[in-house]
């Protein structure tokens, strides 16, 4: 876009939905969240995501998901949502102290 063509005038960006972008860097690994793009539709979002997030062969597969389709937990509810987890140290292997001779399990 050139400098003398102010953005947001003819083409109001806020009308374009937001898509979250997930990239798989290598076969066998999970897709991981890398960021988001605005796009006219899902097809377009895929291409924008490719152009924006994988210019240096960062990925072999891209997922785009409408941000409005993502249901997220609230960070402010974190304590009751994830509770009770921190008070269960026995869920961790290190809780069981075994003698050195058999500690490799």
């Amino acid at each position: 876009m050139s400098a003398n063509q102010p953005s947001g005038q003819q083409m109001p960006r806020h009308h374009m939905p937001l898509f979250e972008v997930f990239v798989r860097s290598k076969r066998g690994l999970d897709h991981t969240h890398v960021g988001s793009v605005h796009a006219e539709d899902a097809e377009q979002a895929l291409e924008y995501a490719r152009d924006v997030y994988t210019r240096r062969s960062e990925g072999i597969s891209v997922w785009v998901v409408r941000s409005s389709d993502i249901v997220a937990s609230q960070e402010s509810d974190q304590h009751c949502f994830f509770d009770p987890n921190d008070d269960k140290p026995y869920r961790h292997a290190a809780f069981y102290q075994l003698p050195d001779e058999v500690d490799n399990m």
Partner: peptide
């Protein structure tokens, strides 16, 4: 198969506790 392999990685992380609590009972 990718999804199977990734499930195994997740599971293996949790299994060590299972074996150790069992051995701890035996001990």
């Amino acid at each position: 198969y990718g999804p199977y392999a990734r499930a195994m990685v997740r599971i293996c992380k949790e299994e060590s506790f299972h074996q150790r609590q069992g051995y701890d009972i035996m001990l």
